[in-house]
Each structure stands twice: as C-alpha cells, then as structure tokens.
C-alpha cells in the first residue's frame, strides 16, 4: 500500500464558506409560518375551548391561553426568520446547504457520494408552489441532505443534473478512485 504525505496549504483550498449561496424561494417564508401555525393552532384552540374553568380559576386559564399563544407566535416568527436564512449552492463537485437560526448549520455533500435523488412535495407545499429535494447517501439518515423550499423548476433542474452525474459516474466506474465507490 502506498500513501503520500504531502503538506496541504489550507489557505489555497477551494473554500465552501466563501461561496455565494442562493436563497430558497421567497414563498418558503409564508409556508413555514402557515406550517407553524397549523401545528400550534390546534393546541391554542384546545386550550381556549376546553371547559377548564370548572377546575382551574379563570385568570390561570387566561394565563395558560396567553402562554400557548405566545409560544405559537414565537414558533411562527422563528420559523419565518429561519426560512429566510435557508440557502444552497451547487458547485461542480458538491452541494452546499445552509440552515438553522439559533444553531446554524452548513452541510456540504459531495456529488460523488450521492446514491439517489428524490423530489417530493406535500399538499401545503404544493399550494405554495414549493418542492423538496432529498439526496441519499450511504451514510444512513445522518448523511442525507434535504433541501426544502425550492421552486419546482429549480428542484427538477437540480435533480436532473445530479441524476446525470450519478449515471455518468456509474457508467464509468474505472474513472473514480477505488475508495470512492461506496459499494465497491
């Protein structure tokens, strides 16, 4: 087994953190607000309508209702802010995805590691004209990348591009280094 030990100049490497990212669709913000309200709305309704006053004094009930309302609103606002931060970029060799508000995450998924690509959209996403792209890797769920809030044409174009890359790679296995073939 041969191995090399070349020094690597880290400053001259292609840097993922300096790539200009494309924000996801602007409609992703209202979608996230509606989704958050859709989750917290039923809770608020239950608290508002349950005849708690039989056992709980009215001020406590009002405080509980206010609390649930506050949490719901905060969730909606945070979702909206988080949605505005979502962005992605496609480089020659990888896909970059940025997400998160309090905990900010930037994930880089090399194209040569993608096993399979899938686009999907739920009814609410379709109502807002949004689509989700999932890239599956050999790393199990922790290695998968989900790009949510894309416009359908963007998601389709990305999917086509990635599938073509996967096909080209699978057709020419000799071109890829042996350890890069995930199921070699």
């Amino acid at each position: 087994m041969t191995w090399r030990n070349d020094p690597v100049d880290v400053n001259s490497l292609p840097a993922f953190e300096r790539v200009a990212l494309t924000p996801v669709s602007a409609r992703f913000v209202p979608y996230r607000i509606i989704a958050a309200l859709g989750f917290w709305g039923p809770f608020t309704l239950i608290v508002a309508l349950t005849p708690l006053w039989a056992t709980v004094p009215l001020p406590a009930h009002a405080a509980l209702l206010a609390g649930v309302l506050l949490v719901g609103t905060a969730a909606a606002v945070l979702s909206a802010l988080e949605a505005r931060r979502r962005a992605f970029a496609l480089r020659d060799e990888d896909l970059i995805h940025q997400a998160g508000l309090v905990v900010q995450r930037t994930t880089v998924l090399p194209v040569c590691r993608i096993q399979h690509v899938e686009t999907a959209s739920g009814p609410l996403e379709r109502a807002f004209g949004l689509m989700r792209l999932t890239c599956f890797t050999a790393g199990g769920t922790s290695g998968d990348l989900v790009l949510a809030g894309l416009r359908p044409e963007t998601a389709e174009a990305l999917r086509q591009h990635l599938l073509e890359r996967i096909r080209a790679r699978d057709d020419a296995p000799a071109a890829s280094p042996p350890e890069d073939d995930p199921l070699g």
């Binding site: 070349d6 020094p7 690597v8 880290v10 001259s12 090399p110 040569c112 890069d180």
Partner: peptide, 23 residues
Amino acid sequence: SALANRTLLHVEAPPGDHAVQSG
C-alpha cells in the same frame, strides 16, 4: 472550515490531484 475544505478535497479531487489543488 479549513478541515471541512480539506476533507472535501480528499473526497472530490481525483487521487494525485491533491498537491496541485492545494497550490
């Protein structure tokens, strides 16, 4: 970030290209 970039280089660059890409 530097370690992430270095990892990506090892994954994405064909073997033998590391030295060239690292300048």
